[in-house]
Design a protein around this nucleic acid. Sequence first.
RNA 1: GGAGCGGUAGCUCAGUUGGUUAGAGCGCCGGCCUGUCACGCCGGAGGUCGCGGGUUCAAGUCCCGUCCGCUCCGCCA
Length: 600
Amino acid sequence: MYRTHHCNQLRKSDAGETATLVGWVNTKRDQGGVIFIDIRDREGVTQCVFRSEESAEAADLSQKLRGEDVVQITGKVEIRPELDGESTFNDAIETGEIEIVATELKILNKSEVLPFQLDKELSNEDLRMKHRYLDLRRPRMAKNLRTRHEITKAIRDTLDDQGFLEIETPVLSKSTPEGARDFLVPSRLSPGKFYALPQAPQQYKQLLMVAGVERYFQIARCFRDEDLRADRQPEFTQVDIEASFVTEEDIYATIESMLASVFEKARGVKVPTPFPRITHQEAMDKYGSDKPERRIGCEIVDVSEHFKDSGFGVFKRAIEGGGVVRAINAKGFAGVSTGQIKRLEEIAKEAGAGGLAYIQVRGAAHDTWRSPIVKFFSEAELAAIEKDLNIEEGDLILFGCDKWATVCDVLGRLRLECAEMNNWLEGKEDELDFHWVIDFPLLDYDEEEGKWNAVHHPFTRPHADDVALLDDESKWGEIRGAAYDVVLNGNELGGGSLRIHEGDLQAKMFSVLGISEEEQAENFGHILGAFQYGAPPHAGIALGLDRLVMLACKEDSIREVIAFPKNNKGVDLMSSSPAEVDFKQLRELYVKSTVQEKKD
RNA sequence: GGAGCGGUAGCUCAGUUGGUUAGAGCGCCGGCCUGUCACGCCGGAGGUCGCGGGUUCAAGUCCCGUCCGCUCCGCCA
């Protein structure tokens, strides 16, 4: 037996007992005659006292201890003494009222000096990743791992309670031409052929519905070979859910109860349900995003009607060309600096705007409004926007004029940047704005490729009222999908849809997406076939677990909640993967690299 | 593929107009200390200023190139 208690267990009521603890040397405070060692395990910290009067041998040995040595300490639990009327209790730790008066010390393993200090944040990400096993000893990281466990457990418990079965689907599966780049795995037994790692278990879970499982879930590892970000890793985890004979309402209720349980367990907060719902149209109109951050206000306002006959040609022409003029009022941001305006203009241009029109509202009178464009506005136009945008002294007005979609995107990004520049979220960090975004468009025309793409994915069911529009290509852009996203504070937690369960409708959908009958047979033959044998109506959703845990832990990168993440080039700096392999290994797989050796 | 920021001691960072021997805090090593808990005090070690080239009497500092990291855009059905 290594231990009798863990390091966050002993309390005043244990005084007098003999206890043995194991753990790491957290800190050592050598006072000369008395030495304090804080011993740490995953549960917490306990102070141990070494005095030569108690055990000369243990006291001697304790002098040799260094940080992160692994030790086993035995001694009597005592209430910390009062000295000269002063308490020696330590309020900072939960075991702060007691200490172990050590009589035995065993060094189980010595430690080298760590490459970084565990009690200080470090900014050097390479170093953290290279020694990730040490980085994970830091309390914040240890807590994140534990919270992740609590969250997955809450998810499993909720879904189990509601009759969902956890079923594993293959990791070695088939490449699909649609969507993200696949990771490929060469097959030794089928020379020249490749498996693909799944981007999502989408087709398998629908086939499980055909199989009669009725309620499925999986904490599924998914793979996408795309460029990385703070919230994107090449392998990531989805909470994947599918159910038969259900409506959207059933899915909403399941997810709401699940997320409420997750935040109850992870943060101890009560999340009100049901979540509010807004349509995709409304989200774009007001917030310029399909995952709106609604805590910052600053909604987009359409002012097109005031500028139809404007003296300002840019606005007038935009409207004549079928576009819109819209604006946001960045409250209290009239003091925007030249540099900030430049940055805002860059963002607007990145999103497709020609430039950025703005007004700095220095005073109540219109002649105090500073702006490169305001001289072109009539008094009536100024009065109209003053009313519509609720303009007051100290405000900054930002305009967008172009096609509706472009303007939404531009102003959507600008309002987020203004929030960032002005810390509008200060004091709102704990607010949780869960909501559903519903009625997504089904299809989206890609000008570059000259074809229609699925906004969600090709298995999404068209809205019941819009199915007929599939027969009229001119109406494809108006078809709504029976799809829904769940959003938290401007982050997409997950999305799903009612699925197509009829073979002929699914084939029609593939055709709309420009997938030929041959390609359908080759890539989707199994699912089209399965739909011929009594596929039940079904629906589902998938949530990004890493992102969910990140938000619950108040982290701003998913790397902080993944035990062994990769850097933004997809490299694991600890194990140095990916790595080159022997020619012999490649030969067995009938694979040959075409990479050119770099010349020095 | 593109843009921005960064790389100086083990870690976090400072380093002025190009000018003496490149600094601080923490950590580390040694010594002292019988009630500390961010212990304290004394002493010490520790640097290819990412790498390569250039300008200059002189480069951490200026110029060019390159590598690495982070963030964002593109991309992510």
